[in-house]
Structure formats: structure tokens, C-alpha cells
Amino acid sequence: METRLALLEDRLTRIDGEANAASGNAARAEALLIAFAARRRIAKGEQLDVIADQLKLRFGGAQPQAVQTIIAFAKDPVTLDELNAQLEAAAPALAGQVREESTWTRARRELASLFVVRRAPAPAATPASRVAHARLMLVRGQIDEAIAEVERMPGADGAQGWIDAAHRYEAAQQALDVIETAAMLEPHALRDGSGKAVEQPSPLAATATDGTATGTF
């Protein structure tokens, strides 16, 4: 009888552990879906609505700054397409061109552009090529490089609004990366839909190196 009781207790312990693991993994999967839903709405420039509450509930204890960044951005969103369109519209100003220049001034500028002294075989970077490169970086999602390219242009001071919007967009993307990683790897502060802490370690944690499990924001 004692042997049977011991075996039964051992079996109940294993069942309880498996149930906790299943519950923890389900909570992580739900958190990851919430993060994906937030990313999709951010990409469309839509309000987060109830997703904002879920972000606070599930990730507020683990990554409060990232959550706040995402929610603040969604209240005044900008999409990648909008950044691209705004950059194209700002191209003349970025090139340092004066809108009300005279015909003679414009002719002199265009004539001067025909003669370029080159010290290397590579073609000199022109404002048009810089704008094209910045737009390519946007398409690739390399926002920091697009911003750096714009900041090197003659009329960068007149594009400060675009630069600020691009920085906000990049910060929101980084925050989304952080909470997605937290959904998969956060060991302590992640919570489920009822606000209860997810105590079960992630099955992916064993493959993550120390100090890189959740990242910081």
C-alpha cells in the first residue's frame, strides 16, 4: 500500500508539473499573439484599443518602458509608407534647393552640376542618390541608416520633422522586438490573461545565452 501511495504521489506530481508547463506555454503563446497583433496595427497606423490593455497586463511588469513606447506611438502613429512619401516630398528641400530661385540662378546651378571634379573613380553622391538610398533603407527596415543618410544632406535642418518621426517609428519597432522576445524568454515578470505570473520557464530559455534572454529597452 505504501509503495502504491508513493507511486500515485509521484504520478500526481508529474501530472501537476505537466499541467503547469502547458499552462505556462499557453500563456506565452497568447502573449506572443498579442505582440504580433500590436505590430500589425502599428504597421497599419491603427489605434491599439483593447490590445493596449493586454500589453499593460501581460508585459507591464517585464518591459514597462517598451509597453509605454508602443502605446504612445500608436496614439500618434506614422507608417512606413507615410515616411517614404514624406521623404520623397522633402527631396528638393533636402537637396538645399531654393524654391523661388531665378531662372539665371537655376541655370547656373544646373550648369555647375555638369562639371564635377572627382578624386576617385566612384561617382560623387548626389542629393538624388542620397534620397534614393534613404528610401531603399526604409524599404529594408533599416531606419537608422535612412535617418543617417538624411542627416548628411544639405537641407537636413528643414527635414527635422521627418527625422523625429523616423526616430519614433524606429523606437516603436525596437519596443515591439523587446516584448516579442519577452513573450518567448522572460523568466519571471511575464503575466497571463488573468494577471497571474507565468512561473513555468520557457522551453526556449535553455537555448538562450545568459543575459540575452529578454533584452532591455
Rank of each mutant, 00 (worst) to 15 (best):
E149T: 14
R135S: 00
Q160D: 03
D177I: 09
A183H: 03
Q200A: 14
T181Y: 01
H133C: 09
R11L: 13
A72R: 13
L48E: 06
V139F: 04
G211E: 09
A205L: 15
R58C: 02
A166V: 14
L87M: 05
D53F: 15
E186W: 09
L94Y: 15
A22E: 09
E30P: 01
L185W: 05
D10W: 12
Q86C: 03
D164N: 12
A74F: 12
T214M: 10
P92A: 00
A175S: 13
A148F: 14
D157P: 05
A29G: 08
E110I: 11
A175T: 10
G96R: 09
A213T: 14
Q47N: 14
I163P: 02
L94S: 00
G211H: 10
A31V: 01
K56M: 06
D210A: 11
A134V: 04
Q47A: 15
P187F: 05
A175C: 05
L55Q: 07
D177Y: 14
E100N: 08
P201T: 11
Q68I: 08
G45L: 13
A35C: 06
T216Q: 09
R40I: 13
I42Q: 03
L136W: 08
R39L: 07
G45D: 01
A38T: 01
L55M: 06
P203G: 13
R140G: 04
N84H: 04
A62T: 07
G45I: 14
G60T: 02
D164I: 13
S102N: 01
T103H: 02
P187N: 09
R58K: 08
G60L: 04
L32G: 13
A205H: 07
A165Q: 05
Q86T: 11
R108V: 03
M1W: 14
L32E: 08
L111M: 01
A172G: 06
A38P: 00
M1Y: 14
V50Y: 09
R4C: 11
E170Y: 14
Q173E: 10
F73M: 06
A72F: 13
V116L: 03
T3G: 12
Q68L: 11
Q200R: 11
E170W: 10
P77A: 10
E145C: 08
Q68E: 09
A182L: 10
Q86H: 11
A134K: 06
K56R: 11
